[in-house]
Amino acid sequence: MALSAARLSVDTYPPNAAVIQVAGDVTAACEQDLMAAHEEASDTGAKVIVLDFTGMDYMNSGGIGMLVTLLVRGQRRQQRIAAVGLTTHYRQIFELTRLDEAIGLFDTTAAAVATR
């Protein structure tokens, strides 16, 4: 199995959100790390999970597939998933795959958390 080249960390964003910082290369190889980060974020009681892609260098189609799986996990926990920090290139990929219909795209974490 390929090694994950992504770097993930979780920050709380009171009162009811958590931010998963996603940096490096996002591929299917980082699925376990991302799901573990989601578990950690969920354990804080977060109802909004913000994926911050500011530090992302690369994403292949496996990365998009992984986000579909993460979305399902979030929906099971009645969480809303949002994304910030996407460049124009990655925004267009979210729009092309229509992932933006399920994962809201925002400019800032504050906007992502504030939007209902």
């Binding site: 260098d57 690369y58 994403m59 292949n60 460049t87 290139h89 990655y90 267009q92 990929i93 729009e95 092309l96």
Partner: peptide, 14 residues
């Protein structure tokens, strides 16, 4: 500034 995966993705179409 173009990411190294840019040539691998389809261009956005509606």
């Amino acid at each position: 500034d173009e990411p190294r995966d840019a040539v691998s993705w389809a261009k956005k179409v509606d």
